[in-house]
């Protein structure tokens, strides 16, 4: 198997917004990452983490302060706007469309701007319409569609441009569960069949976990994690424990746990007690058992907490914030 082609290479990207009164906000702080062709990458982060700014800098819609961005080896700044033939994006979902034009007219318009006009291209548009179940709405004006259908049309218009790199910023925003599932299915299918590089930015962890293999987590403009989702999840899986005690909260337990395990919670309903704790080191489990034994706790149940991407994400961001505040 040959070496994977690098589709996107971001080096030391920094974007600072200057506000009135000489104040400035570092929206993106010297981030670097690469994405291979055919890879589906998730971009996660709390509000204001720098996800959209990063995407817009890559697309040339914002000018970075420093850094270098290459798409298939081409320097974005030097080759702009020609380099856009390799990139397209859903940026604000349904707002990316002309609501007075029909679904088909929107697709044709945006594809034409990218020079995608051949007969074979039109067959591809029809296929996308089928994939996204928009056949009945092909000639309907966008303003008459539901929010979910508008969102799907917006994604179809982006995919119709047939660019090898596609950015989807919050593609499931405002979608119901069923449509969101449908969209996830289609994205996975497209990634595998068309070898496109897809970068998905979303608050919806289920979408990222379902569609992407790798995820980059941004917090306060910096990359705080860049790993395969399975690795991130397993990193937290082994160390999050839930313990049920068959008694009211033992005296001094909460204080003892808090002093040893940051973020540990103890809740009781008068008959039973639930302890939730994240263990940082491998031998912390012995310390935990010692604390429970010293307070004569009767353990009813002990289990590894199910860890998913959301828990991993929250933990990573929390740690990053704590580090940032303490420094």
């Amino acid at each position: 198997m040959g070496a994977a082609t690098t589709a996107l290479d971001v080096k030391s990207l920094t974007k600072v917004f200057h506000e009135r009164g000489n104040k400035s906000v570092k929206a993106v702080d010297s981030i670097s990452f690469q994405v291979n062709q055919g890879e589906v990458l998730g971009l996660l982060g709390p509000n204001g983490a720098g996800k959209t700014t990063t995407i817009k800098c890559i697309l040339g819609l914002m000018r970075p302060d420093t850094g270098e961005i290459r798409v298939f080896g081409e320097n974005v700044e030097a080759c702009y706007p020609r380099v856009l033939r390799n990139m397209s994006a859903v940026l604000e979902g349904s707002r990316n469309l002309y609501w007075r034009l029909t679904v088909w007219e929107n697709i044709l318009f945006f594809a034409r701007l990218h020079g995608v006009t051949s007969r074979e291209d039109k067959a591809h548009f029809e296929n996308l319409i089928r994939l996204f179940s928009l056949e009945d709405k092909r000639n309907a004006e966008v303003r008459k569609l539901s929010q979910g259908m508008k969102q799907k049309t917006s994604i179809v218009c982006t995919l119709a441009r047939r660019t090898p790199v596609v950015f989807l910023d919050e593609p499931t925003l405002g979608l119901d569960v069923e449509t969101s599932l449908e969209l996830r299915h289609v994205l996975k299918q497209l990634a595998s069949e068309e070898n496109r590089t897809i970068i998905v930015s979303s608050h919806n962890m289920d979408v990222i976990q379902d569609v992407c293999r790798r995820v980059i987590i941004l917090s306060q403009g910096r990359i705080v994690a860049d790993d395969h989702i399975s690795d991130l999840v397993s990193l937290f899986k082994t160390k999050a424990y839930r313990i049920i005690l068959l008694e009211p909260v033992p005296e001094g337990l909460e204080e003892a746990l808090a002093s040893r395990f940051k973020g540990a919670t103890v809740t009781g309903d008068g008959r039973r007690t639930e302890v939730r704790v994240n263990l940082l080191e491998n031998d912390d489990i012995y310390t935990l058992m010692d604390i429970l034994r010293d307070r004569g706790a009767i353990i009813d149940e002990i289990s590894n907490e199910e860890t998913d991407l959301e828990k991993a994400f929250l933990e990573i961001v929390r740690r990053e914030r704590n580090n940032h505040e303490s420094s």
Partner: peptide
Amino acid sequence: QAGTLEQLYLTPAGF
């Protein structure tokens, strides 16, 4: 206002 301006800016020939 409509949200289509950035899409037009993504035209490879240039805005």
